[in-house]
Design a protein around this nucleic acid. Structure first.
Lengths: 172, 172
DNA sequence: CCCCTTTTGTTTAACGTTCAAGAAGAACGC
DNA sequence: GCGTTCTTCTTGAACGTTAAACAAAAGGGG
């Protein structure tokens, strides 16, 4: 019936998760669902925007002249250009971001954080940091925090469409 | 100016994340964003539904008579009843889930996994497991897997609106 | 210079999610 | 039994996201 060692046929019987793996995976799904939901709710209530949008403002605040090309911002935030386009349109309506043409590339657009956007960030950063602390860092030992960082780094690296050596594809 | 030790005023200066904490947090956000996106895409392409919907089918498949009360399913999946209502409506249109009245409580509804729904699950589970393995388990050592499970368990527990002792609120 | 391909960013429509409000039955207290 | 309150689930509208298609400019050979 099963010609291969119980759990490893080429593409016949898939390698199901063990009970322990399942427990881990479910904990992961539960935690990420609950946390994203929690942060979305906190920011929506206090700052009037979802977590992702807040993240965009943060990236802009850290960028050289508070501006980033659309494509770069999308890459940084790990979202599609389409999604970013919609998001920036909304943030622009709020007066928190402004678009600017790129002089060197007529297709290009900069998303620029306005003073008003900076102010929103300043006002709501404490609440957000607090939420993150309360939900994550305050509950983990230093070792667990370190582990979490390493693990998430590995997972992210594995899914990154590009990253180090992205322009040297033959090296991969 | 600052009467308290540089980084701990009651509600004055918030406790910002240290550089190391920031690295951890960003790795977390990046990894979860990329992974959820990846799984959504895989399931949408192969099975025609987002990850959350797939999760609902799984919960139903594991339930006693392949059925769960709406409220219970929502709790299990960590989503709101409203969201579930819309989701089940969609899954019902696909013929994967059917609603059934609860005999003992006329307000109640069961969501029931149909044979067709079961079949969809059977057909697409291997691809999904594979995606999860490839993105997560294949990249982590056993120790890291164990850590991940513990950490996510702690975070989830902290955000659970209810759980153990939920009906004994005075004990909390 | 011209053609072809790629990159950049936007748009539209379909879809999913949230929020607030509401209908209907259960549960509780008296 | 009766009124009040709570629970269960749904609805509609506003909002966010996705996917596919597109326009415009840049890049890369010949």
């Amino acid at each position: 019936m099963n010609t291969a060692p119980a759990s490893s046929a080429a593409a016949g019987e898939p390698r199901w998760l063990t009970d322990e793996e399942q427990r881990v995976w479910r904990a992961y799904v539960d935690a990420t669902t609950l946390l994203e939901d929690h942060l979305d709710r906190q920011l929506q209530r206090d700052a009037g925007m979802p977590h992702v949008y807040y993240g965009l403002l943060v990236k802009l605040a850290e960028a050289p002249r508070r501006r980033l090309r659309m494509t770069e911002l999308a890459k940084d935030a790990k979202i599609t250009r389409s999604r970013l386009s919609h998001a920036v349109a909304r943030l622009e309506k709020n007066g928190w971001v402004r678009r600017e043409d790129c002089p060197s590339d007529k297709r290009g657009q900069f998303a620029v954080l306005t003073d008003e956007g900076m102010e929103v960030l300043r006002r709501h950063a404490p609440g957000h940091v607090n939420a993150v602390r309360q939900a994550v860092f305050d509950r983990l030992t230093p070792e667990q925090q370190k582990s979490l960082g390493e693990i998430m780094g590995i997972v992210a690296e594995g899914l990154q469409p590009s990253e180090a050596g992205a322009d040297l594809p033959w090296l991969r």
